[in-house]
C-alpha cells in the first residue's frame, strides 16, 4: 500500500507514491535520485544524511518521508549557486581541505549551513560542539573545523 507525499525539494515541487515506511532519506535518494545525501549508519549517529527541513538541519534517516509532507527540503544538490559556483560554505571546505573521501561531506555542509546562520563568527569550541551529530573518519576534524569557521564568516549569518 502506498501513500502520496509531496514537498518542495531544492525549491522545486516534488512528490512520490511511497510506502508509509519510507524514510525521508530513501525518498530523497531512491525516488528523487538525489544521491548526494548519504546513509552512513542505522542509529542516527553519523549525520551523513543531514538535510535542511524548513531551514533546520535534521537527519533524514530519522524521520519517515510523511513527516516532511508539505515541508521545504534543501539537500546538498541545492546549495551551489544556479551558475554552478560554490556557496561560500562549500568554497570554505574546498579552500581549507575540509574533506577527503567526501562521504560525510554533504552532511557536514548542511549542518554547517544551519549552524552558521546563528553563529556568524563561531569559536573553535562552538564549531566542535556543533559537530556532535556528524562523524568523519578521514579528516580528524581539524580542517572541517577550520572550514566551518571560515565559511561562517563568509556567510555573514545568511544561507
Amino acid at each position: 500500500m502506498t501513500i502520496k507525499v509531496s514537498m518542495k525539494v531544492n525549491g522545486k515541487a516534488a512528490s512520490a507514491e511511497v510506502e508509509a515506511r519510507t524514510l525521508l532519506v530513501t525518498l530523497i535518494r531512491e525516488n528523487l535520485r538525489l544521491t548526494g545525501t548519504h546513509v552512513g549508519c542505522d542509529t542516527a549517529q553519523c549525520g551523513a544524511c543531514t538535510v535542511l527541513m524548513n531551514g533546520k538541519a535534521i537527519k533524514s534517516c530519522s524521520i519517515v518521508a510523511m513527516q516532511a509532507e508539505g515541508a521545504e527540503i534543501m539537500t546538498i544538490e541545492g546549495v551551489a549557486r544556479p551558475d554552478g559556483s560554490l556557496h561560500p560554505m562549500q568554497a570554505a571546505f574546498k579552500e581549507n581541505h575540509g574533506l577527503q573521501c567526501g562521504f560525510c561531506t554533504p552532511g557536514m555542509v548542511m549542518n554547517a549551513l544551519d549552524f552558521a546562520r546563528s553563529h556568524p563568527n563561531p569559536t573553535e569550541q562552538e564549531v566542535r560542539e556543533s559537530l556532535e551529530g556528524n562523524l568523519c573518519r578521514c579528516t580528524g576534524y581539524h580542517n572541517i573545523v577550520k572550514s566551518i569557521m571560515a565559511g561562517a564568516k563568509a556567510m555573514g549569518g545568511k544561507i
Binding site: 549525520g47 527541513m53 538541519a57 535534521i58 556543533s130 556532535e132 551529530g133
Partner: peptide, 9 residues
Amino acid sequence: IGDRQVRHM
C-alpha cells in the same frame, strides 16, 4: 540533548 539535528526534531 542528542545533537543539533536531533534537537530540531
